[in-house]
Design a protein around this nucleic acid. Structure first.
Lengths: 249, 249
DNA sequence: GTGAAGGATTAGACGAGTCTAACTGAAATA
DNA sequence: TATTTCAGTTAGACTCGTCTAATCCTTCAC
């Protein structure tokens, strides 16, 4: 049986690997799980003995297929929980992360099934992150890119928002930059400040927006814009695009 | 911060204390938490240092007020979770225990509040056990007694059913002996075998009962009947009618 | 090609929680 | 009261996950 701690490392490696490809460095893992590098080295050894990662000393680590499956299971739990909390217990999308982190290691398979089915097998969580399927196959790459890489004049749909930082999330929530919203980039200033215009085209999360539904202009610092991924508006294909359970409740 | 493990010990001590009064023996705790007696001794020392239990060597242990508050918090989590799982995720009352055990240490105060309010602040869990209030005051003694102590001819309401053993629970579920059911004791045979007649007078838990709503005769072995607590029929709601401290352990 | 910088690993220690084996104390019995 | 029994405790060891300090690569700049 794997400990919670191991599951956390595996999840961290998976996410890092997805963001920037393998191999993943010791220090990147350390940073993400909030431990020191020696601790990570030693855990990596354990994980390697168990066949969950492969690593090359001084280079970095990579999940084995088994390790990836475990990571996807944890991620599925995490994102299903986030979706459930937002949809059934009235959490706002910026609040769900921490609770899901605490619970993700402790739910049974039965619980997972019941939650998934209560929600109708949602494809994405409230931040727009894809929820791995019950088969635990890695999700296909999507066609999103960071908001910082969009050209001025483009109209795009907010696809997802990194759930790493609470303050960022609050900021974006107040700014109305939520998954599913369509915006147009009107300016990219020095230092990466991105200005967008647009607003929710369906109901927003959490407390309701003010009446001006849709044409606010927002300027986002680069640090925040970089945490937002977008996709082209014209996208309509079945799985990812419009429905997909994004708009909580 | 208290570990999950400590919370488990505290919960165990609380329950044992409630069942048979303080002090609680090392071996009783060991049995309940599934650890060896030396392990318990050593944990008891830790708990004493932290001011959560008082103990007298070779005699036994007792919760301090602070220890009791922690135990009640855990119990509140446990029972709220059981109630939520049964009511909102379609678990049957015999399935909820294990899931709640795993989750009880990891939910936030916020989660506790939301679950409680989603359910309308329920007073009892699906097994009939009282859910401690948000104030964490110890619940008053109730007027229940074990089914084995009822006189032949008495009509009584099933108040609660011990949630310790899955098989017992399944057995009782199939037999229709569920909290809220009114039964009449028609016989007490040698070896404590108790025969009752009756059935659900309100809706049963889990899958619906067959049409014959209420006159099956059931014979329960003593081991099982002892896990069932009952109260007089004339009792109407949870507001504890009189002070008749009969069943009080 | 050499050296400096900086990330990674090794070494060693520690606290938590657990165990088994050995011993101690308390309580019941004779 | 002396003995026996058995629960409770002490002793000592082990695993896990963690840390700090010291050392060891690798790589990048010159």
């Amino acid at each position: 049986m794997l400990s919670d701690v191991m599951e956390d490392y595996l999840k961290a490696i998976y996410v890092l690997q997805t963001e920037s490809g393998p191999p993943v460095s010791t220090s990147a893992i350390a940073e993400r799980v909030g431990k020191t590098p020696p601790t990570v080295t030693s855990m990596l050894e354990t994980l390697e003995e168990r066949g969950l990662v492969e690593r090359e000393k001084y280079k970095g680590a990579e999940l084995t297929e088994e390790g990836r499956t475990v990571a996807l299971e944890v991620l599925r739990h995490h994102r299903l929980l986030e979706a459930y909390l937002a949809e059934r217990l009235d959490y706002s999308w910026s609040e769900v992360h921490e609770e899901a982190d605490a619970l993700e290691h402790h739910i049974s398979e039965e619980f997972e099934r019941r939650v998934a089915s209560a929600l109708g097998d949602p494809a994405v969580d409230p931040h727009g992150d894809p929820i791995p399927g019950a088969d635990l196959e890695p999700p296909a790459d999507d066609d999103t890119r960071p908001l910082t890489e969009v050209a001025v004049g483009d109209r795009v749909v907010i696809a997802r928002v990194s759930d790493r930082d609470d303050e960022e999330l609050e900021y974006l929530d107040r700014a109305g930059i939520t998954p599913g919203t369509t915006v147009e980039v009107v300016d990219i200033a020095p230092f990466g400040m991105v200005t967008v215009v647009g607003g929710p085209d369906r109901e927003p999360h959490g407390s309701d927006a003010d009446g001006d539904g849709g044409e606010r202009e927002q300027s986002l610092p680069e640090a925040i814009a970089g945490a937002v991924r977008v996709r082209p508006v014209e996208e309509v294909n079945g799985a990812a695009a419009t429905d997909a359970g994004v708009g909580g409740a």
